[in-house]
Simulated scan of single mutants.
Amino acid sequence: MSDAFDPVDFLESAVPIDSHEDVTAMREFLVETLEANGADPLVDDAGNTLATRGEGSPHIVLNTHIDTVSPHIPYERDGDVIRGRGSCDAKGPLAALLAAFFAVDTDRSGRVTLAVTPDEEVYSTGAAALDVTVLPDVDTDGDCYVVGEPTGLDVCTAAKGRFEGTLHLSGRNAHAADPDSGVNAVAAAEGALAAIREFDAERDPHPDLGPATLTPTVVEGGKVTNQVPADCALTVDRRSVPPESAEGFRDSLEATVDDATHADVGVDFELTDRPTPFLEAFATDADAPVVRHLAAAATGVTDGDAGDVRPFTAATEASYFSPAPTVVFGPGVLADETGPVAHADREYVRVADVERAATALTDALAALRG
């Protein structure tokens, strides 16, 4: 790691900065940190902060985000533990990525680009617009990507995607005293729910991520208690596995429910409107160099206590960078034996894990650059 940059000092300054509603102050602090350590950062039109070191191949991109969820939780340090909003998701990973970035030996072949995004926790507008070639002298996308998230220093090579949409069932109003004269959309939900339950029955589970899931979460239908309802809406949550895409899922679910309901019932399924693509599932081959070198480095700095190659259990912006080899890695955990950590009011990260993550990333980058 760079002698001039201490990731723990950075983290102790970063966690107190509110970044749940507006990331401006946190981005300014990041830019100041990059400038103070000899980098020449650029902030693009989407609010992404970019900087690059070295040149040539391979081109390795280090990515994480500076926004956090609400509410802000104040910084607190208790010995080896730093608490507060963003301590593990994802300012702790950012601190480790910065340490590795500043340690890059520019006399060796290979480029390392830092790309820090806003809005990961909502619509991922930064990652969706990310183009590292806006940097001077950078004319290629990354050959591989490391995405900073709390993984307990394991190397995560796959994650499920998350889609959401609403299934609209349409029928025909009638008096409840003569129900056969109408088409009951609420009653049609019985067939739709059965189709949802069986949607994945014939699909093979992913070898790393297991089966996809499809969960009905909200139902709305009917307005008058003595009337056959003409409309019913079912909202569903989809956790996808490769190679399913959002549009492929939409078309398949609509056709499946249409087959499972009466011909007089109209079926329409629309994905929830959002300004950016959904976070789709991704999977990277465990034999990819970025996986092998980072797993070896993490295993080395933790004496084998971490560095496992496994899936990540939450959706991430990593899917925007796939199919380039992409891994998710960082200090901190989504949950521990007590309960949730990231996004919870007890969010924390261990100082030793931040330091070990920084060392592992530094060693992996050196190995990747030969």
Rank of each mutant, 00 (worst) to 15 (best):
H343E: 05
A14C: 09
D18W: 11
R162M: 13
L167R: 00
R203G: 07
P275V: 06
E76Y: 13
P216Q: 01
D180N: 12
P16S: 06
T140F: 11
D363L: 12
T276M: 02
G56C: 10
N63P: 04
L253T: 02
S240Q: 09
D40Y: 12
L97D: 04
H262I: 08
A315I: 05
R356F: 04
H175C: 11
M1I: 05
V341K: 04
P7A: 11
P275Y: 07
F10P: 04
E247D: 14
E32A: 15
V257W: 03
Y75G: 05
V146D: 07
F282C: 05
E244T: 15
A281Y: 06
P325D: 03
Y75A: 05
E21I: 12
V81L: 13
T362F: 08
T284H: 01
G142F: 00
E55S: 15
D308Y: 01
G332D: 00
P93E: 06
D141E: 14
P58R: 01
G161F: 04
V8N: 01
P211L: 06
L209H: 01
F278I: 04
T213R: 01
T24W: 03
Y320T: 02
A344M: 05
N63R: 07
A360E: 09
H65Y: 12
T272V: 12
A159P: 00
L193K: 07
V134R: 10
T272Y: 01
R239E: 08
G152N: 02
T166A: 14
A367S: 14
L94V: 07
V218K: 10
L130D: 03
A297Q: 01
T217H: 05
P179R: 08
V327I: 11
S57M: 10
D363G: 00
G370M: 10
L253D: 00
L42P: 09
I60E: 05
A233R: 15
S319F: 00
G332A: 06
T33K: 04
G152A: 08
A99C: 10
T68P: 04
D139A: 13
T256R: 15
S245D: 13
A324F: 08
F5L: 10
E32V: 07
V31R: 03
R250L: 02
F29T: 13
D154E: 11
R350N: 10
G110F: 05
G182S: 11
E317Q: 10
S57D: 15
D200C: 11
L94Q: 03
G92T: 07
S109Q: 14
T151V: 03
V290G: 03
P289K: 08
D258N: 14
R162L: 12
E202D: 15
T213E: 09
D303V: 00
E35T: 15
T106Q: 15
T359M: 11
R250I: 00
F269M: 06
P331M: 07
G266R: 05
K223F: 14
D303I: 03
D45Y: 12
R239Q: 10
G47K: 05
D204N: 13
A187I: 12
